[in-house]
């Protein structure tokens, strides 16, 4: 029930943002509001079991939301810009040393593993190929493995990022 309510309210807020400026009732018209309520009830009924799969209210903590905003707005774009400059250098010169390595991120929650996998895909010259669901290990394709890193069985996650320790931040946000 809580999952259904959270999903419906989230979708309704998104709908309100997308249709702002359409009429006279505040910023919205009556038709848009009615259609939005009906649609968000329908979509919330169908998708609440995917959207709120984990039954916990951990992410309702405002400190975690603040950390998430810092992560998305400041730390992540800097790492992403550095990774893009790196890929641009590799495209122009053609100097690549690709391979698949295994990392052990020590994250338990689904949200944490999702955030780390998506961050890795967009940032450090890497790409998540597969995730082992029992141990939480990730298999990562690097376009340029540093010298000596391929000897290790399991690589530490903090070796992958250059400016900030993003896995520690994800642990603070989602665990």
């Amino acid at each position: 029930m809580i999952a259904f309510l959270v999903t419906t309210v989230f979708i309704f807020i998104l709908y309100l943002i997308l249709t702002a400026g359409s009429g006279t009732l505040g910023l919205w018209s009556y038709e848009e509001l009615g259609a939005g309520i009906v649609l968000s009830l329908l979509v919330g009924a169908v998708s609440s079991r995917f959207f709120c799969k984990e039954r916990s209210v951990r992410m309702a903590n405002p400190v975690r939301i603040l950390r998430l905003l810092i992560y998305v707005l400041i730390l992540f774009p800097l790492e992403m810009a550095r990774a893009n400059l790196d890929v641009a250098y590799r495209v122009i010169t053609g100097r690549i040393r690709p391979g698949i390595i295994r990392i052990h991120p020590e994250l338990q929650t689904d949200l944490g593993i999702l955030m780390l996998a998506n961050s890795i895909t967009l940032t450090p010259g890497t790409l998540t190929v597969a995730a082992d669901e029992k141990t939480g290990d990730l298999f990562i394709h690097l376009i340029n493995i540093p010298e000596g890193l391929e000897k290790k069985e399991i690589v530490k996650t903090s070796d992958l990022f250059s400016f900030f320790d993003l896995p520690a931040w994800i642990r603070r946000i989602a665990e």
């Binding site: 690709p98 391979g99 698949i100 996998a117 998506n118 967009l122 790409l127 298999f139 493995i145 391929e150």
Partner: peptide
């Protein structure tokens, strides 16, 4: 990000190995 993860996984499952590659930890599993 999610879509490229899905394509990489599908490519590995369909039998494509990374061709110039230094190491392949996934081959053991």
């Amino acid at each position: 990000a999610t879509g490229s993860h899905a394509i990489a996984r599908a490519a590995y499952k369909s039998g494509q190995k990374p061709d110039p590659s230094v190491t392949d930890a996934l081959a053991d599993v």
